[in-house]
Design a protein around this nucleic acid. Structure first.
Lengths: 240, 240
DNA sequence: AGAGGCAAATTTGTATCCAAAAGAAAGCAA
DNA sequence: TTGCTTTCTTTTGGATACAAATTTGCCTCT
């Protein structure tokens, strides 16, 4: 079994993001320790981590309170994510891709290409696209030559639309959504091309644009269909 | 007195940055707990924080090891800092400054202006410039309208040249150094002007350039004169 | 001499206990 | 009734005790 602190972390994080713990609610070490049947020590470290992630706020002598996540917050985190991803793309374009990186990006693109060409059930297709998407972004972020970028990103990637694994899908308009995935894919292709040609400016600009795309869907957030990622997910996805 | 964990944190951080603990050296909870005369609990949280800051690395069952800080690492962290500051400047230009922010920036510029006009002893002048510099950058970062930027920055700002409070000064060339401060000041003026005019692109580009300026001095790093900041310093400066 | 395995030691995670700090509330006096 | 002080409760930080996991070194057997 995973460690106790990770368990607490996962449970509380999900509860917060699910809305089970409404914003403003107070929680303390002792409270969740008793609630989850663990001692105060792992509860303590879990709360510290939650605070670092920005999901809860500490008030000197009055315990922690759940922070509310507004659409404005989501937009802000997307802005930061876009800046970091754009930097990663620029860095990679500058230093050049290793053959392994090129192979992985190529594989990611082939995956989403196949998925878009195919015609299977929506759910499994989404899962496939998601996997390809994560592979693409994670590869660039983690292997661009500046590990600090990924390191930094992992510490702010807990908000729904910021997480690499997150994907919105408006179930009522499958047609439109499919189109959106097509556009996303085409952007991947463009970015990959820019990286191959070592075109720093284009890689950076395109990646910034692409990362911001999620913004168009931030208004869908708050009680729409959110599909979480499959197996190979980024470190800090909020599911366990 | 400050809390025990903060004490441990400050001491170990300084030791690492001073080189007292050479890269690769192993440290464990028990070791520093005994060494600093505290229990394992604060030692543990301090080590966790150090790890989050990237100064030490954790290895499954063999304790932590000191990470070596290369000039490449410094360059990487400066790149991230520049990206974040550029985003902050762009955000502030977009949403516009509040009167209070404008007043603070104006005050910062007046301070460095006065300092450059004056002719006092080098040390006190440096301190003054430093204060003005911190005020300028901190104001933009923290009050640009996206608090997540500052939040993110605080978590990566432990490396020497990345910290807002840090300033290199080559004591052997006061003339040249004075010129450098003059250039820095002029960039502040330009950025301030761009912000006033709500010129997003210019504010962003100029801030990026300005943040990167520290890079020109990364080769000085490692055993040159490093002057730490005065009273009003950013949260995560490495002095206590 | 090498392989395998056992045991001691290091390390880490968790539980519990104690004390100090900070709020909240109650009581007392004017 | 109001304002101040004192006490009580909540919360947190730190210390220590305990157990599980992992590593390392040693020891034996072939």
């Amino acid at each position: 079994m995973a460690s106790s602190v990770e368990h607490v972390l996962a449970v509380i994080r999900r509860q917060i993001l699910n809305g089970d713990r409404p914003p403003g609610e107070k929680i303390s070490e002792a409270a969740i320790a008793a609630e989850l049947g663990v001692s105060r020590t792992p509860a303590r470290t879990a709360l510290a981590a939650l605070q670092a992630e920005g999901l809860i706020e500490k008030r000197k002598g009055r315990g922690f309170t759940i922070r509310s996540i507004s659409t404005a917050d989501v937009e802000k985190s997307i802005a930061v994510r876009a800046a970091l991803e754009a930097l990663a793309a620029a860095t990679m374009a500058q230093t050049g891709m290793s053959p392994e990186v090129e192979a992985d990006l190529s594989r990611s693109i082939k995956m989403s290409e196949d998925m878009l060409a195919g015609d299977g059930p929506v759910a499994s297709q989404l899962e496939l696209y998601q996997e390809a998407n994560i592979l693409f972004h994670e590869t660039i972020m983690k292997r661009c030559g500046n590990e600090l970028i990924a390191h930094t990103f992992e510490r702010i990637a807990m908000l729904p639309l910021t997480s690499l694994g997150s994907l919105m899908f408006k179930a009522t308009e499958p047609r439109r959504e499919r189109m959106r995935l097509t556009v996303g894919h085409s952007q991947h292709v463009i970015i990959f091309d820019a990286l191959k040609k070592r075109d720093v400016a284009r890689a950076e600009a395109m990646m910034r644009e692409h990362s911001h795309a999620a913004l168009n869907y931030s208004d869908l957030f708050v009680r729409e269909v959110v599909v979480d990622g499959p197996g190979k997910k980024p470190e800090l996805a909020w599911d366990d």
